[in-house]
Every structure is written in structure tokens, then in C-alpha cells.
């Protein structure tokens, strides 16, 4: 029994971090954006564009960390387009999100054409398990260097939103635009800045994809991971720390299928892919009631009204 359970556990643990890291960044980015009362469905475009930018930046400069910067910049800029335009009257944020998704993926595919073939310098893993004698443990603990950064951002975001003036402003704008205006705040400016910051954080997820895992650029790199973030944020009830656990859970679910197949338990690989969606949906059905909004949801959020 143990020769199956333990290896699968290690593989899933390592896989949860490997697969879950991009989820962590996009969900934190989306969490921040939604806390300010706006949804950004364009995060899929942000993720794709930033992973292309990261790869291109690293390829041209020879330094993966310059690639990481390029990813944050590209993410912030594209999210900025969403942020600014959604501030205009009558502009629907859901539709604009989908348009931004198309623009971002289009630009990334177009500009990324010459980047499909080359190799770029990638981020070196942090070897936490180098003292361990088990090769599996070593592999599971060679950590994406962006993952600790993601954990830090989750902690910082949780603290900032709960305890600082800045966090209060974001939450106030997200909960009642009128109250915020009464305080003399510019609702649009706060939301645009929150959306851009969210885009920059999500951009780190793109960098993680193209510079660490799997560590190359191609057009199917994301395949909807940016959209899953929307579900993740709900799953995490708009709490940054819960985004961390939710990302690891979704990542682990993604790693479970291959891990089981690697020990000879086969079949139904599509069903494994469906598990995270089914789980989120189930939680929504159980947690929602028609009489009040979902607990933790910013009340200005268009998808919660």
C-alpha cells in the first residue's frame, strides 16, 4: 500500500506547488482587482501576454529576472487598459474583460511567433531538499523561486487589506462607491490602480509559466488558467490567504491525474481535469442563498449584484 500512497503523495505535493504557482498569482491579482469592486475576465489575456513578455525579455536580455520585470510591466499595462476603459460610463466590465482577453492573447501570439522555437534562460529553482537522501523529496522540494514571492504577496495583501488605510480605501471602493465618493475618493482612480496592480501580480504568474514551469513559450501555455482564477477567487471567498490554499488545491488536482497514471492507475484523465470546476460549482451551490450575497464578496462587484 505504502509504495503507492507515499509516492503519489510526494508527487502531488510537488505538483501542487509546480502547477499551482501560476494559479496563486492570477488569483491574488484577481482578488485585489475584485476587492476594489471590479471583475477582470481579461486576466487570461494578461497571463498569456505576460508569459510571452517574460520569455521575450529573458531571451533578449539573457537574464530571467529582467523577463520577470517585463512580465509585470506587460501585465500592468494590459490590465491598465481594462482599468481605464471600464471607468468610462456605460462600459461593461465583463464584456471589456473578454475583449481584453482577446487583445492580450492576440498580441502575445502575434509578437510571440518568433519565440516559440528559441530557448531562454530560465529561473533557477531553490533547492530546499538538497540535504534529503530521497530523490523524490529533492524533486518535490526544488521550489519555483517565484512561489515564496507569491506567499509573501499573499501575506502582504491580507495584511494590507485588513490593517492599512490603503487597504481600507480599496475595500470601501469595493463595498460602496457612494460612501467612497462621499469621502472624496476617486473611485475610478482606485479601481484602475487596483486593476493595474492586480495585472502586475498576475504577470508574475505568466513569468512562472514561461520561465520556470514548463519554462518555454508556446501558444497553448496557459489554456484557460487565467479564467480559472475567477473561480479560484470565489472559492477563496476573496481572502488572499485562502487564495494560497485554493491555488495549491487546484494545482494538486491538476497534478493528481498524471501522478496516478505514473503508478499505473489509469483512465478518466478528462474527469480529473474536471474536478476543480465541479468542486467550485458545488461549493457555490451549497454556500449561496438567494437572499444575500456570498459571504466576503465586495458588494460593488458586478457579478455579485
Amino acid at each position: 500500500m505504502n509504495d503507492i500512497v507515499l509516492p503519489v503523495l510526494w508527487a502531488v505535493l510537488g505538483g501542487a506547488i509546480r502547477v499551482g504557482t501560476p494559479f496563486l498569482f492570477v488569483s491574488l491579482g484577481e482578488c485585489l482587482t475584485e476587492q476594489s469592486g471590479r471583475i477582470n475576465l481579461g486576466l487570461e489575456g494578461v497571463l498569456v501576454l505576460s508569459s510571452m513578455a517574460a520569455f521575450g525579455g529573458a531571451y533578449l536580455s539573457g537574464s530571467p529576472w529582467i523577463g520577470v520585470m517585463a512580465a509585470m510591466l506587460a501585465g500592468a499595462l494590459l490590465a491598465g487598459v481594462h482599468g481605464v476603459l471600464c471607468g468610462l460610463r456605460r462600459v461593461n466590465d465583463i464584456a471589456m474583460g473578454i475583449a481584453v482577453m482577446m487583445l492580450g492573447t492576440g498580441l502575445a501570439f502575434y509578437l510571440g511567433k518568433p519565440l516559440i522555437q528559441p530557448q531562454a534562460p530560465t529561473l533557477a529553482p531553490i533547492m530546499l531538499g538538497s540535504t534529503s537522501s530521497s530523490a523524490q523529496l529533492q524533486a518535490a522540494l526544488s521550489i519555483n523561486p517565484l512561489f515564496p514571492l507569491g506567499v509573501l504577496i499573499a501575506l502582504a495583501l491580507a495584511w494590507l487589506l485588513a490593517n492599512t488605510r490603503w487597504g481600507l480605501i480599496v475595500r470601501m471602493v469595493g463595498d460602496s462607491a457612494d460612501a467612497a465618493r462621499a469621502q472624496g475618493l476617486s473611485v475610478n482612480r482606485v479601481r484602475t490602480l487596483a486593476t493595474m496592480a492586480g495585472g502586475a501580480i498576475a504577470g508574475l504568474g505568466g513569468a512562472s509559466l514561461s520561465l520556470f514551469y514548463p519554462g518555454s513559450w508556446n501558444e497553448l501555455l496557459s489554456s484557460g488558467q487565467g479564467l480559472i482564477a475567477i473561480a479560484l477567487v470565489i472559492f477563496a471567498r476573496w481572502r488572499p490567504l485562502a487564495c494560497l490554499w485554493a491555488s495549491l488545491l487546484f494545482g494538486g488536482a491538476g497534478a493528481l491525474g498524471p501522478a496516478l497514471q505514473s503508478v499505473g492507475i489509469n483512465g478518466a484523465y478528462y474527469l480529473f481535469n474536471a474536478v476543480p470546476y465541479a468542486l467550485t460549482l458545488l461549493i457555490l451551490v451549497l454556500a449561496c442563498t438567494p437572499y444575500r450575497r456570498l459571504q466576503g464578496a465586495p458588494s460593488e462587484l458586478s457579478v455579485q449584484r
Binding site: Q225, G254, Q261
Partner: peptide, 19 residues
């Protein structure tokens, strides 16, 4: 499950390497 799925392919490779 699909002809091009970079993350799944990487994860499959890692899972097998773990074994």
C-alpha cells in the same frame, strides 16, 4: 488527453521521473 498541453506534459514528465 490532448495534442498540445504544455503544463500537463511537464507534470507527466515530472511524475514519471518521481517514479
Amino acid at each position: 488527453g490532448d495534442w498540445s498541453m504544455p503544463v500537463k506534459e511537464a507534470e507527466a514528465t515530472n511524475s514519471l521521473a518521481d517514479q
